[in-house]
Write a protein that binds this DNA or RNA. Structure first.
Lengths: 198, 198
DNA sequence: ACCTGAACACCGTTCAAGT
DNA sequence: ACCTGAACACCGTTCAAGT
């Protein structure tokens, strides 16, 4: 009984996640067989199951990766000097970097999330945390009077997420390329939601 | 060889769709076996396959039902005398009638849509049509000066759908009950997006 | 036409055996 | 520990046979 090799372990797990994501994007979660993942990752089923408990466990790993990236997009907003400008910047970065692959994988994951109560609860908690981060940034901007002070910061954060998420879902249907032409209208809507109307 | 009985055919197909939807909500599409659907619908596999070609065909039937209901929600807006009021009314009806079951089924369907190019193209076309209907209603409201004339009607329709869709997706994560408390903020945001700011 | 249920090819996962 | 591949229980779908 040798000791576990953390280097190898991390490398194999990453390779399996990458191979599985490729398969899931091509054929979807449930149409992808473990044999497909094994072929893509070039290893036997026994080896794969040495690193992941189950097919669902692989999905969980992909979700975790995605959650980390989403967090990195929202966090900088809290410290931004000009909230609206920082939000526009984040929207541009998101729209510019998101691919059809990302969108399909995200949809696949979202459906799977709902089925696994544990994963779903973690996703809901992550969503609440992102919203809290955004709400705090909005409240700060309200103190600096760059956002209408009468708005409820928490509700407004939810509105903004809904608006941006809705755009991403729409792009899932029409392709990532459909995102860019809508950006000016999206920013205009955000500006109207946030601005003091008088 | 008897003649096909349209009454029986329609009844059996509806029963199968209902049974399948129940199973899909409970366990998801890919974790539901045809045996499960057969048990829920109280028929043998042979009978079920007499009415539907495949598991994917059953999903297509459920999608078609959903598309019809979505259409019924948007169409009245085109003829409404007061656009914003009619839109608020539609939002209230939607938020008041949507259940966790609907949300889970919708997410399940959305993921499946992406995989089947035929279904996906039909859904994209239905989405474009709904948006056109809403855009026409917005243009009409602009002529009556109840909506800011400087807005692009098509982009604004896309924004409104994204906002409402985003809320529904969020409710998928947090439960349908999370929808109601957000309604005032949602309507306020819609009002700000549509209103002439001067 | 409508229905049954056994049968077929295939899937996720396990496990004895190797290094 | 890490890896293999045969084996097991189960799945979607088909089909010969019944009414």
């Amino acid at each position: 009984m040798r000791l576990r090799d953390p280097q190898l372990n991390a490398a194999r797990r990453a390779a399996i996640l990458e191979a599985a994501a490729n398969c899931f994007v091509r054929q979807g979660f449930h149409a992808t067989s473990m044999k497909d993942v094994c072929a893509e990752a070039k290893m036997s089923p026994g080896t794969l199951y040495h690193y992941f408990r189950s097919k669902a466990d692989i999905i969980a790993g992909i979700i975790e990766d995605e959650r980390r990236m989403a967090d990195e997009l929202v966090r900088p907003l809290a410290a931004a000097p000009d909230f609206a400008a920082a939000l526009f910047e984040a929207v541009d970065v998101l729209a510019g970097s998101v691919t059809d692959r990302d969108l399909v994988l995200h949809a696949e994951i979202s459906a799977e999330l709902l089925r696994q109560p544990q994963l779903r609860e973690r996703a809901a908690a992550a969503d609440r945390q992102s919203r809290d981060t955004l709400a705090a940034a909005i409240a700060e901007a309200q103190r600096a009077s760059s956002v209408d002070r009468r708005l409820n910061a928490d509700h407004t954060a939810a509105i903004l997420f809904a608006l941006i998420d809705g755009h991403l879902w729409n792009a899932t249907l029409h392709g990532a390329a459909a995102l860019a032409p809508r950006l000016p209208a999206l920013k205009q809507a955000i500006a109207r939601i946030l601005a003091d109307p008088e």
